[in-house]
Design a protein around this nucleic acid. Sequence first.
RNA 1: GCCCAGGUAGCUCAGUUGGUAGAGCAGCGGACUGAAAAUCCGCGUGUCGCUGGUUCAACUCCGGCCCUGGGCA
Length: 314
Amino acid sequence: MKPDILVICGPTASGKTALAAALARRFGGEVVSADSMQVYRGMDIGTAKPTRDETLGVPHHMLDVADPSENYSVARYVAEAVPIVDDILARGKLPIVAGGTGLYIDHLVAGRQFAPFEADSGLREELQARVRSEGLAALRLELEQVDPEAAARIHPNDEKRTVRALEVYLSTGKTITQHDRESREVPPRYTPLTIALNFQERPWLWERIDRRVDEMMERGLEQEVRRLLADGVPRDCTAMQAIGYKELAAAILEGRPVSNGAEEVKLRSRQYAKRQLTWFRRDRQAHWFQWEKIPDFSAALAFSTELVTGSGLQ
RNA sequence: GCCCAGGUAGCUCAGUUGGUAGAGCAGCGGACUGAAAAUCCGCGUGUCGCUGGUUCAACUCCGGCCCUGGGCA
């Protein structure tokens, strides 16, 4: 089946931004970011949001669409990104979905539906409070009653998924298992041509990450974090869970040197990159481009261009 | 030069009254359906500094050597 959108994915610091912009330029496309943290306004340096120069004059969507104190979600991402992708297609241009949040990419492409209820009903907070007072095991017992399949699938220690499963059941009357089953029957929304980026050797990626964190510090990540704190962005909100922000905020508030926090950022970024790779490796359709130690950008561009033209995308 | 302490996993260290070793962190692999840069699961990866000796058996005991840190000169 002929693809209709291009997806550029890969771990953090693998060069997605530059490749996406260059390809958009070459094929007259527009970039749709798929990044759970670049959606927040005022979080530019730490999320490595494309700078004005880096966009190469190409339209970039799904950046700066939320306030850091809002809690963004996959559901909201899909609701906002789908009309944008459709519009790009309607204008006869190429949508280039680029980002490191695998969950967002998958949901955008797959067409899955979300349980129809308000995310901010307060139910989740109630359930979390119960976890603290009664213990996770109590909620798990409850889940076993209403949705044994989900209970079997979700690990006893996985608080987030246990809470989520109960949340879906309590607010819709339908189990998450049932919901997922129905959701899987929905036909995919798009047919992606996927290019995944990585480095041939893991340490080469680490070097990239380290260097990038150093650059972030030079560009004033500390000030960016202080600004968010001064603006009263709660430390427990989603935006402040972003790597780079939570570590520096902790260092600042605990009176540790920020350089100490920066080292933590490097470590957490490496670990994050590994989880991203696990996610993207699952996609057997993805075309991997593996950088050498010294990235050869024109080689990546040639590789991608051939795929795009060869697939009939353009 | 002498005295003391120590050399065990990538790092910090535990341990074996002699039967080829285990924690934390790091690392590796995996999962993931409205928090996903989140969350969760699995895996020990090793010339126990080197070299002789004692012993059925040495990482462990003994000798010598090397290295590191501290002290005395």
